[in-house]
Design a protein around this nucleic acid. Structure first.
Lengths: 243, 243
DNA sequence: CGCCAGTTTGAGTGCGATCAAAACTAGTGG
DNA sequence: CCACTAGTTTTGATCGCACTCAAACTGGCG
């Protein structure tokens, strides 16, 4: 599959693109780069000239505190741009790194500028970055107001929707979550022990099954209602409900 | 003082504006509206056509959870735009409301479009919104990794810098913080009792004094180091250090 | 002067952290 | 094919920060 197909699919959640716009996106022919797990794509303090489009695997934004603890602030899943806009700032204030092995496409500032000169594409990119910000806000609510159990249930619910948009969900309820429980803990502001106990509880309740890196959600409605999940903040115009 | 002066001052932290650009911003003559405390400027579900520029007072972004708890996700201080970009989305996924009595200027979508047609102003607006996102990310770190004491010390440190940029700090260490301890708790993901005990501790340690809504920071360095505060994420080019 | 929002204090509880170790898994090389 | 290893998951025991509930205090305002 062409690397921008996922991107196109995601952008069209906002508004259909014209054939010309789709063709333009598909005309991008950049090498697909394989990046191992736990490898930084961009580091704090750098002035990145390029942005990365995730084709497969999971990446994240993260910061390290003075005490060496890591807080993950965003997940990047297939079809996501890692920060197509931060490059207006002179210096990265955080890192972007892979969680799993990833395939990425690297695009230059000029590539982005060329694309955004097409109004529909520019608008779609802007929209995508506003949704990123909306997700960030919802994560604040997650960290500030919800229990460990609710936080994790909420994240799993969110990922189900985001991955469905880019066709990475099987049977409407199952997807690959290629991260460790340690990564999950660092995302949710919890310890690895608590993250593990929450996952156990979700399994005991029969809500999910985890085997290898495959997650099966047996009761989507329950997961959503127990975590207070409401997909409105993802601002999807379509694909919001199961296909 | 002209209502856009604070805005100009803030935008120039990024890059100096030309006289023409400054003049354009100063030529805006919109009525200054007084809004009482605890009053919503924009509500969830709405499709706002206008954005608000805060001239005085504090406002915030917030969400209410299903259980009726409030999480504040951002502070708006004088010189800040409440969401000049969210209006590309069809529906607000959160509320914007005042914390204290505020003076605001309401600007239409057309006003913003007119302004952003000037490249330097457009770039400065974009920059400001990227800094907003950077603050949001740092708040995630705050909520996820720091103790109640560190969180509040960090917030007070951040506000010192942000308010200094717009000339709202006296003696390099004192500013008006027109919010209740309840608001503070809802910002930090804490209860009001914990927020109060942290403030007491900060006072016992001699780091701050609070009287009325006036905050005096007696030891900025200590406050910053105890909270792991590093102003890099605010991306200031100037005003970063005391004037 | 009384009212009310906001602040302060106290007592008890519990969620999630910490510390520690065992069990499992997958990848590696003999 | 099987030890060996490193990373990850799981479990147990204890601790403490922050929550909850409750009540008293303070200060501004009509």
């Amino acid at each position: 599959m062409h690397p921008t197909n996922l991107l196109i699919r995601k952008l069209e959640c906002f508004h259909p693109l014209s054939g010309a716009d789709r063709a333009l996106l598909e005309s991008i022919s950049k090498p697909i780069i394989e990046v191992p797990a736990r490898h930084d794509l961009v580091q704090e303090g750098e002035t990145p000239e390029n942005v990365f489009l995730i084709v497969s695997g999971f990446a994240c934004r993260y910061k390290l505190t003075a005490e060496g603890r890591r807080q993950i602030m965003a997940f990047f899943v297939p079809g996501d741009f890692c920060d197509f806009q931060v490059f207006i700032l002179n210096q990265m204030d955080h890192n972007i790194g892979t969680l799993s092995r990833c395939h990425v496409v690297e695009m230059s500032r000029e590539d982005i500028v060329t694309l955004t000169e097409h109004p529909a594409i520019g608008r779609a990119f802007w929209w995508a970055s506003l949704v990123d910000a909306a997700v960030l806000r919802e994560w604040i609510v997650n960290l500030g107001q919800r229990s460990a159990y609710e936080r994790i249930a909420h994240l799993l619910s969110e990922l189900l929707i985001r991955l469905r948009v880019v066709g990475q969900v099987r049977d409407n309820s199952s997807y690959t979550l290629p991260i460790t429980q340690g990564d999950l803990a660092e995302t949710m502001g919890l310890t690895i022990v608590t993250a593990n106990r929450v996952l156990m509880k979700l399994r005991e309740k029969g809500l999910i099954t985890v085997s290898g890196r495959e997650l099966i959600i047996h009761d989507v409605k329950a997961l959503e209602s127990e975590s207070g999940f409401d997909p409105k903040y993802l601002h999807l115009q379509q694909y919001a409900s199961p296909l």
